[in-house]
Amino acid sequence: NSLAEAKVLANRELDKYGVSDYYKNLINNAKTVEGVKALIDEILA
């Protein structure tokens, strides 16, 4: 998966839960796919 794909999928996942734009910005600023995954795990914990 590319970083861009990971960000799109992460933001879709956040949308399902009604997560605020603050967290979407964190996702969009992530530098690695692993970073995106770690943020998602933390946000949805």
Rank of each mutant, 00 (worst) to 15 (best):
N1Q: 14
N1M: 13
N1R: 14
N1W: 09
N1H: 12
N1S: 11
S2A: 14
S2P: 12
S2T: 12
S2D: 14
S2Q: 11
L3S: 01
L3P: 01
L3H: 00
L3Q: 00
L3A: 01
L3T: 02
A4K: 10
A4S: 11
A4Y: 10
A4L: 07
A4T: 11
E5L: 12
E5Q: 12
E5A: 12
E5M: 12
E5H: 11
E5K: 10
A6H: 06
A6M: 11
A6W: 09
A6P: 00
A6D: 03
A6E: 10
A6I: 11
A6Q: 05
A6R: 03
K7V: 03
K7D: 02
K7F: 01
K7W: 01
K7A: 01
V8K: 14
V8F: 10
V8G: 11
V8Y: 11
L9Q: 15
L9H: 14
L9Y: 04
L9K: 15
L9G: 09
L9S: 15
L9N: 15
A10K: 00
A10Q: 01
A10V: 03
A10F: 03
A10C: 04
A10L: 03
N11H: 13
N11P: 02
N11V: 14
N11D: 07
N11G: 08
N11F: 14
N11I: 15
R12K: 15
R12P: 02
R12D: 12
R12E: 15
R12V: 14
R12G: 11
R12I: 15
R12H: 12
E13N: 04
E13W: 13
E13V: 14
E13Y: 15
E13I: 15
E13H: 08
E13G: 02
E13Q: 10
L14A: 15
L14Y: 01
L14W: 01
L14V: 05
L14E: 00
L14D: 00
L14Q: 01
L14M: 06
L14I: 08
D15Q: 09
D15S: 09
D15K: 06
D15F: 04
D15C: 04
D15H: 05
K16A: 07
K16H: 07
K16E: 05
K16Q: 08
K16R: 11
K16W: 04
K16N: 08
K16I: 06
K16S: 07
K16P: 03
Y17A: 10
Y17V: 09
Y17T: 05
Y17P: 01
G18C: 09
G18R: 06
G18I: 08
G18A: 07
G18F: 09
G18D: 08
V19D: 04
V19C: 13
V19Y: 15
V19S: 07
V19E: 05
V19N: 06
V19F: 15
V19A: 10
V19K: 08
S20I: 08
S20Q: 07
S20L: 06
S20E: 09
D21A: 09
D21F: 04
D21W: 05
D21M: 06
D21R: 04
Y22H: 12
Y22N: 05
Y22I: 09
Y22F: 11
Y22E: 10
Y22V: 06
Y22G: 05
Y23F: 12
Y23L: 07
Y23M: 08
Y23H: 07
Y23N: 03
Y23W: 13
Y23C: 06
Y23S: 02
K24N: 03
K24V: 06
K24Y: 12
K24R: 13
N25S: 10
N25L: 07
N25E: 15
N25V: 08
N25I: 09
N25F: 09
N25W: 08
N25K: 11
L26G: 02
L26H: 03
L26A: 07
L26R: 05
L26M: 10
L26T: 03
I27R: 00
I27H: 00
I27E: 00
I27P: 00
I27W: 00
I27A: 01
I27T: 01
I27D: 00
N28V: 06
N28L: 11
N28M: 12
N29G: 11
N29T: 09
N29I: 07
N29P: 00
N29E: 14
N29L: 11
N29V: 09
N29R: 09
N29W: 05
A30R: 03
A30L: 05
A30T: 07
A30E: 09
K31P: 07
T32Y: 02
T32G: 02
T32A: 02
T32V: 01
T32R: 02
T32M: 02
T32S: 11
V33Q: 03
V33T: 05
V33E: 04
V33G: 02
V33H: 05
V33R: 03
E34T: 06
E34G: 06
E34D: 11
E34S: 09
G35H: 14
G35D: 15
G35Y: 11
G35C: 10
V36Q: 00
V36M: 03
V36C: 02
V36W: 00
V36N: 00
K37L: 13
K37W: 15
K37E: 07
K37M: 13
K37V: 07
K37F: 12
A38D: 08
A38Q: 12
A38E: 07
A38T: 10
A38C: 11
A38G: 06
A38K: 13
L39H: 02
L39T: 03
L39F: 04
L39D: 00
L39E: 01
L39M: 08
L39G: 01
I40C: 05
I40R: 10
I40W: 06
I40S: 03
I40D: 00
I40V: 13
I40P: 00
I40H: 03
I40G: 01
D41Y: 10
D41P: 03
D41E: 13
D41G: 10
D41S: 12
E42V: 13
E42K: 15
E42M: 14
E42C: 15
E42F: 14
E42W: 15
E42N: 09
E42L: 14
I43Q: 01
I43W: 09
I43C: 04
I43D: 00
L44D: 02
L44Y: 04
L44N: 04
L44A: 05
L44F: 08
L44S: 04
L44W: 07
L44Q: 05
L44M: 12
A45Y: 10
A45S: 12
A45P: 06
A45H: 10
A45Q: 12
A45C: 12
A45G: 11
A45F: 10
A45V: 08
